[in-house]
Design a protein around this nucleic acid. Structure first.
Lengths: 244, 244
DNA sequence: CGTCAGATTGAGCAGCTTCAACGTATGTGG
DNA sequence: CCACATACGTTGAAGCTGCTCAATCTGACG
């Protein structure tokens, strides 16, 4: 069976085995599919959505705007990510979500999620875990932002995105497609666009990456990890005996 | 009945009504109580705890250390906070938790949490929500860190702590007890101790706060909020018709 | 009284920002 | 097919924010 929720199921199964029943429940949870063009908002801050959005295809970013119009991106999402599962319980969006590229999105009604939590405790724990990993990533970003240099922070972000894309099979050789502008990278790292440019040049000069157009190639994974002080544990990508 | 979990229940009931049955389940979930002295670790990064810690009394902070010994605090916790509920599903701690003051902590075995998630879907959603609010706070901190000035960031943090302490009845007049050193504030905001000192002086000079010893008094709430670009929605402190 | 943790101050410096210009690729209407 | 527009990347120069280092101050406490 060709499941709509393939990428999500693939991800959840990295945490724990799913029963066929659970897989079916997930797949049936999708009410409809939505397309959002690049640079459009998928959801806006303050919205009270009735569905949660599962990203099937494309890149998206959670963001907040502060008074002087500056923007901070607090998460970057790839295929298989449940970009606002938290809205199921948080109700009001505390941030917007932007489509970085054209996106294909599956909508899961909150009512269905409620039914899942009533009937599938184990699946519920996996979905909960999914949001907990979001939190772990936030913490890692906070640390990188507060205590790493701009260059180290950038290296760190690249390591993370590389592994996350690898986990969903979006790596060819050592190359990922990263359709993100330098301005967007700046909003992610809390840097100016100009400085992002310089930091990238440094990583290139050091022979750590190649980055032309959207194609980012890791030239020296070990050194890149070291520069970014990167350890992957927080991503929970290995199935380390967990039994949610 | 004098429930051990009083402060937590008070907090959860801000989100949704709890049945007596649920309250009892929570209270019975506490296996034992633990005391941790100030400046001791409650949990260390890499630990795989078998219980989650509910802070009954005191202040605690989640933190990570980076290579050069610098520290980043990613959350500050007060009475009623479930400081590592996420370890129930995340298994391995991606950060340590430090007791900022002497702490009294209730331990809830993960096995009990699993039983709760099997039997009390509604209570499960409330606990899940609790961890989602942690995430919302992380996002807000990311934004403050990346896009606000040091002074604004500090003002923002003070606003948040003030409201969270108010919510658990720890405000007298306009004064809170904040037993946190300037070095710890620095590790929270990603600033040096010296700069924390200067930023606090600025807030004092502006007539926004008084801060002597541990006593922090809000002198001008409206202006403080404005300086810190603070809006309280992300804390989910109001019972806005939510029905988890 | 001495000690120690924490707060405060000053001076010089580094990292990152801002502003402003210019380069380069891609697309679009006439 | 060219002229122009647009989006994004790159570069230089000057300045500000926050850092580092190092010294001094303050209050609590044994």
């Amino acid at each position: 069976m060709a499941l709509m929720t393939n990428s999500l199921i693939l991800k959840l199964e990295k945490y724990d085995r799913l029963s066929d029943d659970e897989k079916r429940a997930l797949d049936n949870a999708i009410a409809r599919v939505r397309i959002v063009d690049a640079d459009e908002d998928i959801i806006r801050e303050g919205d009270r959505p009735t569905d949660s959005s599962l990203l099937l295809e494309g890149f998206a970013a959670r963001y907040k705007i502060v008074s002087n119009g500056r923007r901070q991106i607090s998460a970057i999402h790839v295929a298989g990510d449940f970009i606002d599962l938290h809205s199921f319980l948080l109700k009001t969006m505390d941030h917007g979500v932007l489509a970085l590229t054209n996106c294909r999105i599956a909508l899961v009604p909150h009512a269905t999620l409620e039914r899942i939590t009533d009937e599938y405790p184990h699946l519920t724990r996996l979905l909960w875990l999914n949001t907990l990993i979001d939190g772990a990533v936030h913490r890692e970003w906070l640390t990188a932002m507060g205590r790493l240099s701009a260059t180290a922070h950038m290296a760190h972000l690249i390591c993370e995105l590389y592994l996350r894309l690898k986990a969903i099979g979006h790596v060819e050789g050592d190359t990922i497609q990263l359709p993100i502008t330098q301005a967007e990278l700046g909003d992610t790292l809390g840097l100016s666009t100009v400085h992002v440019n310089r930091v990238l040049q440094e990583l290139r000069k050091e022979g750590l990456i190649r980055f032309q157009g959207d194609a980012l190639t890791i030239l020296d994974w070990e050194r890149l990890k070291k520069v970014g002080e990167f350890t992957s544990t927080y991503l929970s990508l290995q199935n380390e005996d967990r039994q949610p």
